[in-house]
Structures are given as structure tokens and as C-alpha cells.
Design a protein around this nucleic acid. Sequence first.
DNA 1: TAGTGGTCTAGACCACCCC
DNA 2: GGGTGGTCTAGACCACTAA
Lengths: 229, 229
Amino acid sequence: MRSSYRDIKAIVLTRIRANIWPPGANLPGEIELAKEFGCARATVNRAMRELVDDGILERKRKAGTKVKSSPTRRAQFSIPIIREEITNTGADYRYVLLERQTITAPGWLRSRVEIPKGQKVLHLRCMHYAGRNPYQFEDRWINLAAVPNAAEYDFEDIGPNEWLVREVPFTDGELVFSATNASSEIANFLNTTDGTAIFTIERTTWLDKVNVTYARLYFSRDYKMTTRL
Amino acid sequence: MRSSYRDIKAIVLTRIRANIWPPGANLPGEIELAKEFGCARATVNRAMRELVDDGILERKRKAGTKVKSSPTRRAQFSIPIIREEITNTGADYRYVLLERQTITAPGWLRSRVEIPKGQKVLHLRCMHYAGRNPYQFEDRWINLAAVPNAAEYDFEDIGPNEWLVREVPFTDGELVFSATNASSEIANFLNTTDGTAIFTIERTTWLDKVNVTYARLYFSRDYKMTTRL
DNA sequence: TAGTGGTCTAGACCACCCC
DNA sequence: GGGTGGTCTAGACCACTAA
């Protein structure tokens, strides 16, 4: 049996680990490798392209392929729908809308997401529970100019995140991870004490340069986000 | 000009956004799409494969291709070499080794990373600075059975992360993100007050099931990790 | 069991960019 | 200018799995 692109990836990785091709080294060209592995050039090409995706190799036309000198492995993760994240652990998911209010976009929000002055936004605050335990407090603003039908939806049964993901497409997004000391209000929602370190995600999404929504997600105490490389 | 795989990706995304193919909908098969776009099936295949990678589509043999019902976009990020992360901001990078000690792996570490009893590990504690400001406190353990030559390296000039990335290959890794209240010791290192919320990364890597290293990285106050979707 | 995606091939043309 | 990777093609066989 000839080599598949998976075989080739494995072989290349082995050689890199064995220091046959140390960081910074140039690899043979695709044609030569295809000859060595007894396969078509396209097969080698696919293997190499995936290794670039994985952050192992660098390629440039004419210059060739080399092992990245500092092999910064790329990690992939996905922000799951919170309902699924909770039910996957076996717990019951419960959602509560705390507040729903149409307001004029405040200055700090406008400066953050480039919303014009006077623009109306929908402000929502909600809690997500895993069984009896608070799981996440969500503080969210939705740009009503970008999502007019949000104004008619009550968000009593379905959280804004889940609703938006299903109803409103987006082209760009930003995620910011940080740690926050719980304010007394947030501590109260999350059933913990003032000042507790809270894992926080800020999420912003755009549809073709127009801001759709901005959210701050405060997770319960001891929440950890895990990723494999 | 015929369609390239990039064109096809763009068209498919447009149709999904225009609700021509709403979440959960089945797409035509590759052969049919190839006919529509006037290109080879392989070209369609590549476009579709990448959309699966991006978290937009799901595919199963025989069942066909459908739009993910909850389009969980996957985000990619790379953990940069800390030196580069700092010098990229224009600041000077400074590294200080605080402590270097060979010890028998403590129980909590063994249980976490499956190191046999009695195994020697190298324990390092270091600080990374951006200019005059503390940037990260690193608490690291290196499995000397997996990385014997770490015992002979002094780590005075190069941080363990950077050294390991260059010297020791790994096959698997785990990243855990969380928020921690600073202990008085960590607060001291990071020049902040007790209890400050600290963004924390735990990183574990293995080489073929053998643990290489485990590290806890405590970032300075207000550190944020940003990713685009 | 039949239909769909998964993969491979041999050949081709092209774009980029280092020398 | 010429070598390298980037992409596309037309055709083929295979593997999985829903029906």
C-alpha cells in the first residue's frame, strides 16, 4: 500500500522529533518527497498544508518548506452553546431572564463597538444554571439596527446567545478572555463572595462591519476552560 | 474563469447567511455542486472540507452535507512564545529565574500527570517582565525522566518554556484557562494586592503518553487574551 | 446495498518570490 | 529567470453508513 497523506504527516512529524529535520531546517521539495514516499505530489501537498495549519511548518514559494523555528502549535476551540455545555455534563440546564430593556447605546458601548450616537440597543441580563448551581451570568447588548426583530422577541425561554446563533449570521467575531474580581452584584448572582476571581469572556460579533452584539459572560467560581493541542 | 475553492466557500457562506440553506438544511451532493459551479469535484470537496474545519458544516458519508444547526464557529489561537508576545508590543523583555530545584514529584503532581512514585522532577519558578512591569509568573515542573538534559541546563538566560519548545518535541498538550485570586506570594511577584483576579493558564504536555512538563502561568493584573473568530 | 463523502493519481498551468 | 508551492482537473477506487 502506498502512503496516504496521514502517513506522510506522521513520518514528517517523526523526523522532526528525531531531529532529522531540526527547527529551521529546509525540507526537500514536494516532487522529491512524492518520489520518496511513492505517491502523487498532491498527496504530499495535502500533508504539508495540514502541517502548516497545525503550526509545524512554514512554506514559501521558491524558498521551499522549513520547520518553524519556534513551533507554535495552534490550538482550536469552539465556544459551545451553553445549554449543550451543561446538559453534556448530565446536569439540568435552566435559564432565567433577569432584565430586558431597550435603551440608547451608552457612550462606553458605542466607543467599543462603533455604534452611531443615539442608536437603540436591547440590554439583556440573564442567568444560566446547571441544576441548582449558578453557571454563568450574561450581560448582553444587541444592536437593534442590525437585528431589528430582536425587539419583538421576549427572550423568556431562550437565551440571547442561543437565539442569536440560530437567527443572526455574522461574519466576524472577537473573543477576549480575562479574569475579573466579582462585584457584589455579580457575586450575588453567582452565589459567591465579593472579590472572587471570575473567569470572564467578552464576545463581540459583526455582520459585515456592522456590530451585531456585545456580551460579557461571567462564569461561576472555579470554572475552567479546557483545550487540547 | 472557473470557480476556485475560495469562491465556492464564499458562495456557500452567502447562501447560508441568506437563509437559502438554513441551519440543519441538507446541501446538494458534491457532484451536483461541481456541475453547478463548473469545476471538478475535488475543488468542491476542498471547499466543503474547509467549511467543516471552520465549524460551519457537518458531513457524513451516505447522509450528505448539512449546515450545522448550531453553527459553533471554531476559533484558533496560538500560544506565543512569551518573549515574542512582549517584544511585539514594543516593550523590552526581561526574564528572571527565581528558583531551580530538583525534587521528588509530589503527590498532587503525580496524580495530575501520571508520573510514577519517586520520580525526580525539576521545579522552576520564574518571572517574565515587559519593561519594568511584571508580566507573568511561571511555576513549572519538568519530568526529568522524559527530559534528562534539563537537569544539566541552568535556565538562567532562557526561560523553560522557550527552551522546551526548542529542545523537546511533544505529541499532546492540554491548556486550561481559569481565574485565580492572587495569593500574597503571587500578588507580590506580580506587584498587585492579595486577592486580585489573575488570569491563569495551566499547560501540560506529553510525548507519547509520557508527561514532559506541567506549568502554571499567572498573568499580570488586567491581562486579556484576545482571539478572532 | 447503494449513495455519499474520503482519498489518491498523473498531469497541467500559474503565481509568487528568492537568487 | 527559474524553481517552488498553490491550485485545478478528470477519473478512479474505497469506506462508511443510512435506509
